[in-house]
Design a binder for these strands. Structure first.
Length: 207
DNA sequence: TAAATGATGTCCT
DNA sequence: GGACATCATTTAG
């Protein structure tokens, strides 16, 4: 399953087009599973398979940061699809989202876990807690891929610093409620909008 | 201006 | 299984 030869590296260089993200958020969250999250930093190319996502569905979703109004923080979500919405939680962890739906409809997909695919070494070096699990959680993977505020609003349809490339469709996808959103209304809290590749060991552990 | 609070991870017992 | 770190953003006054 691990990809390492040069032909596979070449396949990482084509980003998914904007049209991929300009769709229903739940569909995008599902279709991102199995795709490669690709990062270029300091001349190194890093790639990891997306194995867990969550859909945040705009004004009608009380768990979505943008459900009330547009604020400076959530501005990227109101913009065109295919851009990064990066923000800080708990005063210390950066989380990566990819904006979906047409401009003005503030939706995004949170990337919750990835499986190292190319240059796992660089990911390991970027982690502070080097002996902890590498990227099976939304805050861990941003640390492993050096993703922070500097990538806020980044256009992920260009092969520049951060993008997503096509990958194999997973055999089986599992769903469940999203994590850490107790503040949301019951219907939104219970909605099965967390998706992951069934039986994949890199999926985050439920809290 | 002030106060409350997280789309979490790590370490400790 | 639980404590705690740590601060930008939001909301209230």
């Amino acid at each position: 399953m691990a990809l390492s030869d040069s032909a596979d590296v070449a396949s990482f260089s084509t980003p998914l087009p904007r049209g991929f993200y300009d769709r229903d958020t739940l569909e995008v969250a599902q279709d991102l599973l199995g795709c490669q999250l690709v990062r270029r930093v300091e001349g190194e190319l890093i790639a990891a398979t997306i194995v867990e996502t969550e859909a945040y569905r705009g004004a009608t979703d009380s768990a979505c940061h943008a459900h009330r109004r547009k604020t400076p923080r959530t501005e990227a979500m109101f913009g065109p699809p295919g851009h990064a919405y990066v923000y800080l939680v708990y005063g210390m962890h950066w989380l990566l989202n990819i904006v979906t739906q047409p401009e003005g409809n503030p939706c995004a997909v949170l990337v919750r876990a990835v499986e190292p695919c190319l240059n796992e070494d660089a990911m390991r070096r970027a982690r502070v807690a080097r002996n902890r699990e590498l990227s099976n959680g939304p805050g861990k993977l941003t640390r492993a891929l050096s993703i922070d505020k500097a990538l806020y609003g980044e256009d992920m349809t260009r092969a520049d610093k951060l993008w997503v490339a096509q990958g194999p469709t997973p055999q089986r996808v599992a769903t469940g409620p999203r994590v850490g959103i107790d503040y949301a209304s019951p219907a939104d809290r219970d909605a099965p909008w967390r998706l992951w590749i069934a039986d994949n060991p890199w999926v985050s552990k439920a809290r």
